[in-house]
Each structure stands twice: as C-alpha cells, then as structure tokens.
C-alpha cells in the first residue's frame, strides 16, 4: 500500500480512500526525464562528463501534478496535442514508467497498447506471436487453448496463422495483439491510438468488444486524437497541456475545450 504523498510511490492495492469502486487513483503524479542524453550516451563521454561535472542533459517534466480518480467500469478519454504527456501518463498508469513524484494506486490486472505491433516478432509466425502476446497479457496456456479459435476468428487471421508476421500488412499486424489482449482477463485496458491502422469493420468489432468489456466492469483509459472515437466511447475525458491537466470533466465539454484550443471544427 503506497503512502500518500510519497515521491514516486506506486501500488496495486486499494486506493487510500478505501473505495472499492476506484480502479485508478493518482495524486500529484509527475514524471521527469533527463533529455538530450542520446547524443552523449557513449560510455567514455559519460565518464568524462561525470568527472568534469559538465552535462548536456536537462530535466524535462513530461507530466506533472495530475490528480485523477477513475471508477471501475468507467471509460476515460485522454486527449491533448503531440508532446502533451498522454503516452507518458498512460505508461505510468500501466506501471511501465515509475513516477518521479506523486502517488498512484491501481486495482486489477492491466493490459496495455501503446504502439502498433508492440512486442511482436516480425520474423516469427502469426501463431507464435499470438502465443507470446497471450503470455505477455497474463493468459495461461490452458486459457489460450480455450480462446484460441475466438482470437483467430476475431482477428480474421485463419489464413495467416503459419505466415511470418512480417509478411502481413500493417493493419493485419496490429490485429494480432489487439485480438489477443481483448480476449484476455483484464481489469484495466489502456490504449493509445491503437485503432488507427485497423479498417472500419475491424475498428467497429474492437469497439463492440471494448463495450462488452466495459459492461463486464473493465476500466478503460483511451488516448486518441480522434475526437469522434473519444466522444462516442468515453463518459469522461481529461485534456493534457504541457504535461498538466488543462481540463477534465464530461467528455463533450473537454473535447469542446480541446477543439477550441486547437482552433479546430467540432467533431460530429
């Protein structure tokens, strides 16, 4: 159980409020990176910099001061311009990144999608990649055996099971992790623009499956630049600007705020 207010505390226990219905609770969440290191990431350069005290890096707060509570079964949209901190925020929720400050409590098994084709081996067969993704999503071999046909049918991968993944189109490649994860036992689903490469029928199928999971109590946090996707699927949204929450509340209001900031025409 994390201590409220401790720097970078992360936990999977019940949130401090003790409310069973809270799936995610973040208080003062922040993540700082040292940027500019890539040009200087060689061993001897770093040693030299360390000895001389000269460094080419500077701190960058990608996300700072986020307070948020998400109830079980809620679908929350995360919107914001490029570099606003959406992916960093989601990665912290997933436990992939450790917060620099603040407290984060999540309750339940988390499945994540941050990039298309994440965690896949293009040199291996589709069937091998399904098995690997299932394992990475926490699915047991017995469960995979039971759900394998459903996964393959969902992704329409029947004709490609023994093809190398690299031989498939980008759209089909993205179906492998999506179809597998949507059939795993998850309590919290985090997605970051993962529906972008799928065709309309597959997107519709994924959204229907997501709604089914929502009805079963799965919490969803969805980052996207598609305002239509956010408006149609989320009840609440947060808008990030320079790593901080600029607006949060009912999805229509937050989307309207974001579109006003971007000077864009409202999404239908």
């Amino acid at each position: 159980m994390p201590v409220a207010g401790s720097a970078g505390a992360v936990g999977t226990a019940r949130p401090p409020s003790g409310d069973d219905q809270i799936a995610i609770s973040a208080v003062g969440l922040g993540k700082r990176f040292q940027i500019g290191t890539k040009t200087d990431a060689r061993f001897f350069s770093q040693m030299l910099a360390w000895c001389s005290g000269i460094t080419n890096t500077r701190p960058l707060w990608a996300v700072r001061g986020i307070d948020l509570q998400i109830r079980r079964g809620e679908c929350v949209g995360v919107i914001g311009r490029n570099g606003s901190g959406k992916t960093t925020f989601l990665r912290m929720l997933a436990g992939v990144l450790v917060p620099t400050e603040g407290t984060l409590c999540t309750h339940g098994r988390i499945s994540t999608f941050f990039s298309i084709g994440s965690g896949l081996f293009s040199e291996l067969r589709v069937i091998d990649n399904i098995r690997l993704t299932a394992a990475l999503c926490g699915m047991s071999r017995a469960t995979l055996r039971q759900r394998f046909d459903a996964i393959v049918a969902f992704g329409e991968l029947e004709d490609y099971l023994y093809s190398r993944l690299g031989e498939l189109s980008t759209g089909f490649t993205s179906r492998v992790p999506l179809a597998t994860a949507l059939h795993s036992d998850i309590d919290i689903l985090l997605t970051d623009e993962v529906f972008a490469t799928g065709d309309t029928p597959f997107q519709t199928k994924c959204l229907a499956k997501m709604n089914e999971l929502l009805r079963q109590g799965t919490t969803t946090v969805m980052a996207s630049h598609s305002m239509a996707l956010i408006k149609n699927n989320c009840s609440r949204a947060i808008c990030l600007e320079h790593g901080a929450v600029a607006a949060q509340g009912p999805v229509a209001e937050v989307v309207q705020y974001y579109e006003r900031q971007c000077g864009a025409a409202p999404a239908k």
Partner: peptide
C-alpha cells in the same frame, strides 16, 4: 525494448 515499453513483466 518494444516489449519492455508496452507490457508489464
């Protein structure tokens, strides 16, 4: 790194 940045294990 792709697995590391996308899955918790």
């Amino acid at each position: 790194r792709s697995i590391m940045m996308n899955f918790i294990m």
